[in-house]
Amino acid sequence: MAGSVDTEGFKEHHPAHHFKDADHEFFTVKNGMWLFMLQEILFFAPLFVAYFTFKFIYFEDFQYSAAKLDWKLGAVNTVILIVSSFTVVRAVVAAQRGNNEGLIENLIYTIICGFGFMIVKAIEYSSKIADGVLPGAWMNNAALVEAAPQAPLFYSLYFMMTGLHALHVAVGIGLFAWLLLKAKRRELGPKYYTPLEMTGLYWHFVDLVWIYLFPLLYLVG
């Protein structure tokens, strides 16, 4: 089967035996992907619940601690992720139209955006580490704790929430790299682009989480 090619010039794909046809497989996998993202919402939920709870109890402390975050870097990351969601959409459309060059191009842009996000995150984290602004028991900035005694709690939540999110971004970058390889082997075309569609949905979800994290942590505090 290695060399067989479909009518659009892409590698032939055979749906698993328990599906009626390729479309049945596509829409079932999509259904499953939405279910996966449903559980992801609930996976992030406890951190948001904890954040909302403590934010309103320790209102001033959280505002004061959040003011130490660089909102400009946060905004840059927001723009990066929005652009990457756009390039993902372009990649999917390219595959749907059989435009393999367009697909590869947009996958590369998406990966670049992903790395861009991680680099900005690294800059943010290292600046915090350099200032001794660390989560929980690691907090090592007496002036901050003096002014906002619950700063360790804020930073526990900040690092955990952005850390979990960054982990998801890293996984996404890996998935897009895998898709890039598939695209280079002409395995993603109009008749079969399921892995691309699903990874795309995942990536938009990651964007969604950041759309809420950014104003919550950086702007409102």
Binding site: K30, N31, W34, L35, M37, L38, Q39, I41, L42
Partner: peptide, 8 residues
């Protein structure tokens, strides 16, 4: 699919 996601 809409119901699935929004129910979350």
């Amino acid at each position: 699919n809409r119901a699935i996601f929004f129910s979350g």
